[in-house]
Amino acid sequence: MSMRVIECNQLSLELGGSRVLDGVTFSVEEGDFLGIVGPNGGGKTTLLRVMLGIQKHDCGKVSVFGKPPGHSPEKIGYVPQRLFFDRSFPMSVRELVLMGRLPKKSLFERYNAVDRACADEAIHLTGLERLMERRIGDLSGGELQRVLVARALAGKPELLLLDEPTSSIDPEMKTTIYDLMIRLRGSLTMVLVSHDTETIRHYVTKMVNLNVTLNLLHGFENH
């Protein structure tokens, strides 16, 4: 029997006085590829942030790897949507990817050969070898998006959470990112947030639809 990775039961949450999530229920088993879809502003990113433990919820029960959210960082890889950081930050692609090793390291501990090997492997997997020494400010949006995927993979996660990894990039790059997800499918559990229901329908094994109307619609099971 496969292990339950995420359990979300009757989750509700209000932000700034409006109800963003209302009675959301779903579960993710080991090896699943879950798509979370819904309109813009429908609470998809908020739901992801709850699972990451950086957003508190009002009621309902959420557990990740059998623990409250935020208690298993070493098992989770996160690919954020918006590139909040400063593009002029003096850092190379390799250094950024190496940051994905943080969850596996304790305070004071320095990055070692194993960390570098994992970062290089992630760089290879995402086809970024050519850009490895580039300054992050010199990358295109699509390249940067792949670097963020590489960073998440460098931590050898069991669960990969992706927030709109294909928004604001050109169509070719989108295909590259989806190809990568197909290659990863099965080897780890993935949760993908997207507003593009039609496209991700072909890739995911399970879908949750956060509609503007209450409750979730358990879309389909795609096995």
Binding site: G53, I54, P73, E74, P80, D86, F89, M99, F108, G155
Partner: peptide, 21 residues
């Protein structure tokens, strides 16, 4: 001692938090 942690919070505080720092 804290160079990797300081780098992480300077660059992307949310990611640093998600990483358990």
């Amino acid at each position: 001692l804290f160079n990797k942690e300081f780098l992480a919070i300077s660059f992307d505080e949310e990611y640093a938090e998600v990483s358990g720092l």
